[in-house]
């Protein structure tokens, strides 16, 4: 005679498994988190040479490398440094190899031209990284610094269409207005991060050292708690946030 198993015997373990999975997902959405505290990783990409109609940016390499080396000199693993000619869309997008590059590091800086829905790895539109092709944070990335004009002008663009760039990443630091090609910003920001500044404040104050009034910095976060983050080893870092339909933004006007 066939016996039916009581319903609770099936449903309770299932619910427990689902609950555990949900909990793990909520605490650490990045599947590729490789312990940022003991092995923090930094990556940079920069473009100095553009072609008509964009203008060249002669200091982007110094800016990015200043950031890369300042963190690298204190023990951060230097995961990738890609410049003009070696940057590629594939390194940024979800359908590419982002988990080995941008989403494979804890903090990433890009220095070059940009707009409110993309960054430009070259003048050729085929080499533009559209935010709605990216999913940052589902593997490892916590903080993205986009030293490019207008990149955080419309936060809604980080969660639009089929892919959400703000996909468990904590903060995306950029500009609401235009930005300028200052070589010193990268090293200065990195030094402030190492001095224990919150990520938000390090970006604000580093940019404010060079940019004059009228320039507005914008920082986008998954939620307001992300604004409390310091980098690994310099203070508290929140657990990877649960991704929902809300976006938080901080705006700061330079002096």
């Amino acid at each position: 005679m066939k016996r039916n198993r009581p319903l609770w015997r099936v449903t309770v373990p299932t619910l427990v498994i689902i609950a555990c999975f949900a909990l793990v997902t909520a605490v650490s959405a990045g599947t590729g988190d490789d312990n940022g505290l003991s092995n923090p990783e930094v990556g940079v990409e920069w473009v100095t040479e553009y072609f008509w109609p964009s203008q060249n940016l002669p200091s982007t390499d110094d800016c990015a490398l200043g950031f890369y080396n300042t963190l690298g000199n204190t023990g951060w693993t230097q995961k990738f440094n890609k410049g003009t000619g070696t940057v590629a869309v594939d390194q940024w997008v979800a359908d590419g190899s982002d988990s080995s590059y941008v989403d494979g590091a804890d903090i990433v800086m890009f220095v070059g031209h940009g707009a409110n829905n993309l960054i430009k790895l070259a003048t050729d539109p085929l080499r533009w990284v559209y935010f709605d092709c990216c999913e940052w944070g589902d593997y490892d990335l916590e903080w993205t610094l986009l030293h490019s004009c207008h990149t955080t002008q419309i936060p809604g663009n980080f969660k639009s269409n089929k892919r959400w760039a703000l996909n468990s990443a904590h903060l995306i630091c950029g500009f609401d207005t235009e930005a300028y090609d200052y070589a010193e910003d990268g090293a200065s920001c990195a030094q402030k991060l190492l001095n224990g500044y919150k990520v938000r404040l390090a970006w604000y104050t580093a940019i404010d050292e060079t940019h004059s009034s009228g320039v507005r910095v914008g920082i986008v976060g998954e939620n307001s708690d992300c604004g409390n983050d310091r980098i690994w080893g310099e203070g508290s870092v929140i657990a990877d946030p649960v991704v929902d339909r809300e976006i938080y933004r901080w705006l700061y006007t330079c002096s």
Binding site: E49, F51, S54, N56, A122, T123, D124
Partner: peptide, 20 residues
């Protein structure tokens, strides 16, 4: 667009903001 990756194309690299 051959210079898109920073490899020289037939057009000169941008100088200044002359195209704005």
């Amino acid at each position: 667009f051959a210079g898109g990756d920073g490899q020289p194309g037939s057009l000169p690299a941008a100088q200044g903001n002359a195209e704005t």
